[in-house]
């Protein structure tokens, strides 16, 4: 299996009056087509780890390597370009731009990247939304959609530029169980059918158990799941 993203001794310390270690010495390697759960108690650094993996935050120490490229050497613009092409984020809260319709929101990353023509972008946005069961909601603005629908639009937006890596921070955290299940199945299908790598933070151990692999964090340290094939999620900590 090809490695997609790798970290070595990844550490993020907040330099406050009393320094706070968000993530400590995390070394891991995640391959293509992996469906990875990140678990741990609240405040254990799951979100912090995800921000580092997604190049939204810079580590205090250690490295993140994506597709063989060391991101520590990149400037902000290169990191932004990397996010645009290789990474799709889904957050707990949908974070759609409120003034734009579902389709327009999905088009935004494509319009930024500009690999497609105007009509192709429209078509792709419609297709992505339709595949997530939103064919009837293309022209609705976020405030006209339910929580589950918004989250699916956010997933479609994350997929807009067809990135190999999807990072999801408690994507079902604010949804009812039915919507949660729906979004979970969508993420699972991305891995199984489209060959994406999905790394998702979740509190739901039942969900985590249905994923390929589980990274467990306590106080910013990885306690299991460092390498591919390590600790399958069937092994409880």
């Amino acid at each position: 299996m090809n490695t997609l993203i790798e970290t070595k001794d990844l550490t993020r310390i907040l330099r406050e009056a009393v320094p706070v270690a968000l993530v400590r010495d995390v070394s891991l390697s995640i391959g293509e087509r992996e469906f990875v759960a990140v678990t741990g108690p609240s405040g254990s650094g799951k979100s912090s780890l995800l921000y580092l993996l997604g190049l939204l935050d810079r580590p205090t120490d250690g490295t993140v390597t994506i597709r063989g490229r060391d991101t520590a050497l990149m400037d902000e613009d290169e990191r932004a370009a990397m996010r645009l092409v290789n990474i799709g984020f889904v957050f707990q809260f949908h974070f759609l731009l409120p003034e734009f319709t579902a389709r327009e929101n999905v088009e935004i990353p494509m319009r930024k990247l500009r690999h497609l023509g105007r009509n192709e972008m429209r078509q792709r946005a419609s297709d992505l939304l339709a595949a997530l069961g939103l064919a009837d909601h293309l022209d609705k603005r976020p405030d006209q959609l339910s929580g589950g629908q918004r989250q699916r639009v956010a997933v479609a937006r994350a997929l807009a530029n067809d990135p190999p890596l999807i990072l999801a921070d408690e994507p079902t955290g604010s949804l009812d169980s039915q919507s949660s299940e729906q979004v979970f199945m969508i993420l699972e299908k991305l891995v199984r059918e489209q060959g994406k790598t999905v790394i998702a933070v979740t509190h739901d151990l039942e969900m985590a158990s249905r994923m390929d692999r589980r990274l467990h964090l306590i106080d910013g340290r990885l306690t299991m799941g460092a390498a591919t094939g390590d600790f399958r999620s069937t092994h409880e900590p």
């Binding site: 613009d77 645009l84 990353p109």
Partner: peptide
Amino acid sequence: IMKSLGFTE
């Protein structure tokens, strides 16, 4: 959110 999507400063 736009920055997370890949927009630059």
